[in-house]
Amino acid sequence: MRIATTIFLTDETITPVRLARELQQRGFAGLYVPEHTHIPVSRRTPYGGGGELPREYGRMLDPFVALSQAAAVTSTLRLGTGVTLVAQHDPIALAKGIATLDHVSGGRFTLGVGFGWNVEEAVDHGVDWPTRRELVRDRMRLMRALWSSEPLAYEGEFATVSASFAHPKPQNGAPRILVGGAAGPKLFAHIAEYGDGWMPIGGRGMRESVPVLRDVWSAAGRDPDALEVVPYAVLPSPGKLAHYADQGVREVVLQLPAGGELEVLRALDEYARYL
């Protein structure tokens, strides 16, 4: 099992360069970072974790800039987003950024796809909240058109692109794509259509959900052995990781504190026993 990490990188935490070097040197498999462009002060949308929204949500570094720094100082560390809020991006520009990061990292990038939870943030980006899932599907299709080996036009419900020259290309035609979100038929349909797997937060309920996802995956004609399930933002214990292994999990992403160098390095020392 590969042991990767995730952290809310901010202007107050350990830097991407220092963290990436430490992760690779210690033998961790990857670094994933989340995304929020801004957090409107109104705070009408409740925080899913309960209580006040943690300070780091409003101070995040841009994930693609941070991961570019990490890519520049490492050679084997995998890099990913957990998650990219696809609905909040121009898909043509996002396709370029993803392909470029995959290119400069030597194919080490994983795109975590999310639909968002903060309504106010999404509305500021012009997202119609009830249709955000359909918008994400449309943008994923458009980006795949731009990543195709030959110029390919795409005309969708929300956006279009003419047949275009668009380089660089992701090394394998597209980066590895993991779709985040709570288990359910809509999410599983998205995973089976354009994903390589599921990124469940914390990994709760996998024993019941993974067999359902496998059925949807197989019904879509996907290779049963290719499905990846990557529990995300996990606070580890030996029993929990053993449970994931029993479920066929080959990678788990451990949550690091959104702290300074000393706090984060102490956490890495603690997590090293799981490597």
Rank of each mutant, 00 (worst) to 15 (best):
D269G: 04
T74P: 08
P54S: 00
V252F: 01
V210R: 04
P236D: 00
E150I: 07
G116S: 01
T131I: 09
V136F: 02
L111H: 03
D90E: 12
V230C: 04
P257V: 00
E261I: 08
P231M: 05
A72S: 15
L111P: 13
E134V: 09
G239D: 10
A245Y: 05
Y232V: 10
F188A: 07
A219K: 13
R108P: 14
F109I: 07
P168I: 01
V212Q: 11
D269Y: 07
W198F: 01
E22L: 10
V234S: 03
V83H: 03
A122N: 08
R78H: 08
A20I: 14
A182Y: 14
R139T: 04
V210W: 02
S237V: 10
F165W: 14
T15P: 08
S75N: 14
L268F: 09
A87G: 15
E270I: 03
A272R: 12
L241D: 08
E121G: 09
D196E: 05
L262D: 15
V264N: 04
R18E: 15
A182L: 12
N172D: 15
E263I: 01
R266W: 10
V179C: 03
Y47P: 02
Y194L: 03
E155C: 15
V104L: 05
E193Y: 06
V216T: 09
F28D: 02
Y32D: 12
Q247P: 04
Y57S: 02
H38R: 12
P185G: 07
V212T: 14
A166N: 05
I14D: 04
L142R: 13
Y232G: 05
L265A: 05
G195L: 03
N118D: 12
T131C: 03
P170R: 05
R21Q: 15
R59V: 01
A145R: 09
A258C: 04
Q24C: 07
L31A: 11
L9A: 06
K169M: 06
N118T: 11
G97I: 06
